[in-house]
Design a protein around this nucleic acid. Sequence first.
DNA 1: AATGAATGAGGTTTCATTCAT
DNA 2: AATGAATGAAACCTCATTCAT
Lengths: 181, 181, 181, 181
Amino acid sequence: MKRKDEGKARDILAAALQEVQAHGLTGLSMEGVARRAGVATGTLYVYHKSKEALLDAAYSATKRHLAEAVFRDEGLPVRPAFLRMCVAYLEFLVAHRAEVAFLEQLHHSTLLSPSTRAAAESGARPLVDLLERGKRELLLKDLETPLILAFLQATLREMAKTAPKARFPQIALLCWDALRA
Amino acid sequence: MKRKDEGKARDILAAALQEVQAHGLTGLSMEGVARRAGVATGTLYVYHKSKEALLDAAYSATKRHLAEAVFRDEGLPVRPAFLRMCVAYLEFLVAHRAEVAFLEQLHHSTLLSPSTRAAAESGARPLVDLLERGKRELLLKDLETPLILAFLQATLREMAKTAPKARFPQIALLCWDALRA
Amino acid sequence: MKRKDEGKARDILAAALQEVQAHGLTGLSMEGVARRAGVATGTLYVYHKSKEALLDAAYSATKRHLAEAVFRDEGLPVRPAFLRMCVAYLEFLVAHRAEVAFLEQLHHSTLLSPSTRAAAESGARPLVDLLERGKRELLLKDLETPLILAFLQATLREMAKTAPKARFPQIALLCWDALRA
Amino acid sequence: MKRKDEGKARDILAAALQEVQAHGLTGLSMEGVARRAGVATGTLYVYHKSKEALLDAAYSATKRHLAEAVFRDEGLPVRPAFLRMCVAYLEFLVAHRAEVAFLEQLHHSTLLSPSTRAAAESGARPLVDLLERGKRELLLKDLETPLILAFLQATLREMAKTAPKARFPQIALLCWDALRA
DNA sequence: AATGAATGAGGTTTCATTCAT
DNA sequence: AATGAATGAAACCTCATTCAT
């Protein structure tokens, strides 16, 4: 049921995202989303069958957006691929604060359906594959993948808060050095 | 005259924590908290002037609980102090999953007052002091403190998910090695 | 699309008026108003953003009703205009007891916004103008206008309680004689 | 049940009066009264069996206060007695605005018991008697007593708003002239 | 498809009153 | 007598969802 107005569909998801950012998950109301998207409340139900479904969709779309920007597999060798992903992630973090905050809020919450969660997870597949390839090729330390992911996420998120864009390649290198065998 | 009951105050905070755990922040209702605490809804407002205030108080109390268990400064030298804190944190993570989940949910959310956030922050003071002492004594790498904190949090949280209690000292040592100068 | 229903808006104001009459200001509940108006509680909030706003609106509407019935300026000379207003006021008093009682209750009360009070005041403008014209033309005693208003209100209200409709012109004349120069 | 603390009993009635003045009848709460009176909420129920009873008592006490100050019968002849009462009423109106406002609010309201209303009415007995004596002695116009009362109340209330104390005797005389045969 | 008025269940909060101390 | 914590019914209001247009 999605062949109505592609632009309006996008507006609605964007509005949901901005509303969560502005009022928090608990302060989110369908009326608020509708107002921000410039449509009537009823219209929301033309595109999504419930509030939960709308949030699910917004979460998925945002995750996909992030995955497309960051986790593309471009067929590079391990090291340059790793460095590119780190830089891309840092850039995404500073360029799309609202999206990042939204994902964070939704991530901890009882609202997402398990299937959405699983689908979202799969967006990072290319990075996971890359790390495992790196371990097989003995380029990376033999640590559990979730641990590496947590380390990267924590480090990059923290660095994105203060470091200037010019230093992003350096930071990526730093991460590489921390993890290489 | 009837004095305010210390036990009841604790029950209410505990009930709030459990309700968030059970239904998520968005599914939290004052009636649910009251029922679980075994008091009337009105009683909640004797102890806290609003839902927000109740959550604030529960968050503060839980943070304090964590700080007391983990971040005590016992006057030890840097290395043993660091190792002790790591182990204590790991132990807290596995022994108080509900509390940890609750803190996580509240941490991202628009509900906490800035002052509560600030107060909560200060609980980790002893660890911050320790890290800075370590850097001054040239025992630790000269990294920004927030970065070290993020690293420790990510690593320990991840390890607590799978590692058995017996390996906690080893993990602490691993962290030390990762950070020592 | 469903347009806001003019009839429903009227029903709600009428219901508020009747509820105040039945249970007093302190006994007024939104649920009672909704039930009497034959709408859902939520509907009240489609038309008025709060209980206070609803009462404000009901007060304004009733005052306007009274003003239209009584204080019309029909371009008559002072004496016949004065007599006509007196009779019209007396007729309103007996024909719309509920409205009158409602206005009285609201008049003394902290619920009305100052702007509503001011707007309501302006309804009697034509009478005020008439009285001042009468004083300028030396037809009426040179008393302060508020004093004349208080006198008229007290007298007419009191007379309306007992006098039969047939005597209204006589009463109006009596007032005129009491005030003429 | 009133032999506890005469001062406290007075404080409670005074607090009720002030609270109505401050927040209106609808904004009146027992807790507010207790706080202002400097007692615990429970104490209110030692002196009055319900909120309604408390308001009844406060209304009665205030009416009695007014009656004692204004409607004393001092055995004077009609004219001086009338003039004295007018001046006393004017003085009460300016000296006890809070009391007057309180009485006004309660007068229109469903809260007073009929018996309280009747008792309060009887406070003005001496004035009613005086007026009837005046009519019998052919000193006053033969108007219905309630009409005279309404006229006096409206006029004096209006005059008290602006006239300086020095002019009170003049105003009293004005009223006398308006009503004398 | 789009609208937005209408719904009514459910949420938060208030408050008169009771009761243990 | 005095206290004030505790109660729980009801009040006000919000909001996801439906439905007539």
